[in-house]
Design a binder for these strands. Structure first.
Length: 373
DNA sequence: AATACGGGGCG
DNA sequence: CGCCCAGTATT
């Protein structure tokens, strides 16, 4: 393939058939021997492929494996997923992040029941129309499960291609991004498109890594244009990143009659429907304890006495670095009857596992359990 | 075109 | 602590 640069980030790509075939063969020969054994590679039914691909969005393989196995055990079929209870679903997904993925999975399952008679759609357009499925995932499912010639360009594949063809610029920029998809489409062989797509990503995930690519073991070392000039570690060219902002949070674990207070997030989209301990963000606050007590009075009408700090948790979320201070607390006034609503609950410690907690809060739960034992 | 969305792993 | 990871939806 030749890559000619035109104005700005516009490129024009030409790939001669013989060279293309050579690239394909070398990649396949390497993949047959060196591919990792992954649970979702044992089967090719669209449901399993779908679940694995959605989990793999922005999430590394090693993290996904246990979640994938547990998910299929909990929701073995599209029908089970469509009928899933939301709190159960979020509990199974908790810790993976990007929780809209789980919600979209259930929505898509319901759509498949409604629009496709319960059978996973085979057409690319049908797949792409499902919520939570974009160009990448549609390409992955269509090629792997249905043997169709669609590209699946992820971050790994994009990195490999920028190096192979020595493409300058930010891969996220419109011009280069479009070219990368075009390259990915162009390279797919007539047979085994799914294996080709996976092999390309596998190469990026295992050898063609961001920092120190293992070029000496790479099946494409001879044809890699970046390596030819020794600039493989300088590609892809990434944009300048944002600075993380720091913030301080405090929550109270309020004990009352062997129970603690938990509340459900109902505002905004971030971590909606997950449970947490009462509290909030307190930056530049002089007396943290009194501010926390005041907030709990405002939010829940409860007078609490804050005791010692149980633990301190560091948590990174998107571009924020949160320090979470966890205080033990007790009620100042006695309550004869504790409320048990959709958003506020007093639960025994052994009941906490029935509720979905996202990462920071589940660390609090973990700390509580270790104190009791 | 830019941003929100979570969390884990790595050096 | 900063960067990266089998992206998608929204604005």
């Amino acid at each position: 393939m030749k890559v000619k640069k035109k104005k700005g980030l516009e490129f024009c790509v030409q790939l001669d058939p013989a060279r293309k075939q050579k690239l394909q063969k070398k990649l396949f020969d390497w993949y047959v021997i060196h591919q990792r054994e992954l649970p979702w590679r044992k089967v090719k039914d669209p449901y399993s492929v779908w679940i694995s691909e959605v989990m793999l969005q922005q999430t590394q393989v090693q993290t996904v494996i246990p979640y994938y196995l547990r998910f299929l055990k909990s929701f073995p079929t599209i029908g089970h997923l469509a009928k899933a209870n939301l709190q159960h679903l979020l509990r199974v997904w908790a810790g993976l992040g990007y929780y809209s993925r789980a919600r979209n999975l259930r929505q898509a399952a319901r759509k498949i029941i409604q629009d496709h008679n319960g059978r996973f759609p085979e057409s690319y357009e049908g797949v792409l129309a499902l919520p939570g499925i974009g160009r990448y995932t549609a390409g992955a499912i269509s090629s792997i499960a249905f043997n169709q010639r669609y590209p699946a360009l992820d971050g790994n594949a994009a990195r490999v291609l920028t190096r192979l063809f020595k493409l300058r610029g930010d891969p996220k920029s419109a011009g280069l991004h479009a070219l990368l998809w075009k390259c990915a489409q162009e390279l797919i062989p007539q047979s085994n498109p799914g294996d080709f797509n996976q092999a390309l990503m596998e190469l990026g995930a295992t050898l063609c890594s961001p920092r120190r690519p293992a070029c000496l073991r790479c099946p494409w070392q001879a044809e890699c244009l970046a390596r030819k000039e020794g600039i493989q570690e300088l590609l892809p060219e990434k944009r300048t990143s944002l600075v993380a902002e720091k913030s301080q949070w405090a929550v109270a674990v309020i004990f009352h009659n062997q129970r603690v207070l938990i509340v459900r997030r109902t505002e905004g989209k971030l971590l909606r429907d997950f449970w947490e301990f009462p509290g909030g963000e307190f930056n530049e606050v002089g007396n943290l304890k009194s501010a926390l007590a005041k907030k709990i009075w405002r939010d829940f009408g409860l007078r609490v006495r804050l005791r010692n700090r149980l633990t301190t948790i560091k948590h990174a979320i998107t571009k924020r670095r949160i320090t979470l201070l966890v205080y033990q607390a007790e009620l100042k006034t006695s309550m004869l009857k504790v409320p048990h609503t959709q958003t506020v609950r007093w639960v025994r410690l052994d009941e906490l596992k029935k509720y979905p907690f996202a990462s920071a809060s589940s660390q609090v739960v973990k700390a509580l359990k270790s104190m009791i034992c």
